[in-house]
């Protein structure tokens, strides 16, 4: 029955079938992702509200559940303002440049063993390359807006993002050393072996434990990379208002918003895949599967929100100091430690 159906559909589309099939897969990733983004904003407001002993959104729909949809519709109906003196085309291209890489990076993320849009050997490299494109959107937005706040915000944001990209890169390198592959699927599979995995306690064999300092560096750098609190000085509303997006309104603003949250979810997914065993089940007797990845991502995302509700904002010089003077030495040292560890007879990644 299914075979016949598939044959029929293939017959309809003819040679265009691979395109259609891949587009379907992409839609299957992007649609839930955008929905996830929308509800992440809702989740964020609710979580922080409860932490503040408030209620949070509760007017639109039951428990305020329709709130994100309402927000989106409102933004759609708002005028897109192009300020005088702005470089119009760059100004309009910038949000696209911010969101496109945030989405395109998802092309190589595996959701379970063998389940993903593309499975390429250089997937981690691809993510590194695509994710660092995001800074262009921000810096172009700041430049094109012809506003001092936007300009300063963009400069700060760019400096912050590139600074934390270095320690993130070192964290990735150590993961590569113990995984022997750039392929994300292989990196997850490599976490399924080890002494503790043999005892049924797989979660102790995941990379987070032996690479604990790198895990922390990666997680915190991820928060800084996405310009989230407590590293959100680039859009600190009490200081330089909304940073690079101060002049944006309507859908153009919505795209920056989407990009930021899509990046957050991407960082959560990568943290789960690289350090928390991806779709692997934490203990031997439970089956692996996508829901584990979803649970881990939710956990990391919850951490993002928790940080925002807990920590006061860093000053910009403190942010730069943490990136350059703490994280880089820590990652260099742990990189060396892992190297020596693997050279020694105590190597646990045979």
């Amino acid at each position: 029955m299914m075979d016949m159906l598939q044959q029929f559909i293939q017959g309809v589309f003819g040679p265009a079938w691979p395109v259609v099939w891949n587009l379907l897969k992409i839609v299957a990733v992007v649609a839930p992702l955008l929905l996830g983004v929308a509800y992440l904003t809702y989740f964020e407001r609710k979580v922080i509200a409860y932490m503040h002993v408030r209620i949070g959104p509760n007017r639109v729909g039951p428990l305020g559940l329709i709130q994100p949809i309402a927000d989106g519709l409102k933004l759609l109906l708002k005028e897109i303002i192009v300020p005088s003196g702005a470089d119009k085309w760059v100004y309009l291209i910038a949000p696209g440049l911010a969101i496109a890489p945030a989405l395109a990076a998802w092309a190589v993320v595996p959701f379970a063993d063998g389940l993903g849009v593309a499975n390429i050997d250089a997937s981690l490299l691809y993510i590194m390359a695509i994710a660092s494109m995001g800074v262009y959107g921000i810096i172009l937005a700041g430049w094109a807006s012809n506003s001092k706040y936007a300009f300063l915000g963009a400069m700060r944001s760019a400096a912050q993002m590139v600074s934390y990209e270095i320690s993130m890169g070192f964290a990735l390198v150590t993961v590569l050393m113990v995984s022997n592959s750039l392929n994300l699927t292989e990196i997850v599979r490599a976490q399924d072996h080890g002494i503790f995995a043999g005892m049924g306690l797989t979660f102790l064999s995941w990379n987070w434990l032996p690479l604990l300092p790198m895990f922390i560096v990666y997680l915190v750098s991820g928060v800084a990379e996405t310009n989230r609190a407590p590293f959100d000085v680039v859009e600190g509303e009490s200081e330089i208002v909304a940073g690079h997006m101060v002049e944006y309104s309507g859908m153009a603003f919505a795209l920056f918003f989407l990009a930021e949250y899509a990046n957050m979810i991407l960082i959560a997914a990568l943290t789960s895949l690289l350090f928390l065993g991806g779709w692997l089940s934490p203990v031997g007797f439970l089956p692996d599967g996508f829901f584990w990845l979803a649970a881990k991502m939710s956990f990391v995302l919850f951490l993002f929100l928790w940080f925002r509700a807990t920590f006061p904002r860093y000053r910009f010089d403190q942010i730069m100091r943490l990136g350059w003077k703490v994280f880089i030495p820590v990652s260099l040292v742990w990189f060396t430690v892992v190297g020596v560890w693997m050279m020694s007879p105590l190597n646990i990644w045979k």
Binding site: I99, A107, V117
Partner: peptide, 12 residues
């Protein structure tokens, strides 16, 4: 293998 990636970038 990279074709879906190209498509994905276009969708993005």
């Amino acid at each position: 293998n990279y074709f879906p990636i190209l498509l994905f970038i276009l969708v993005g």
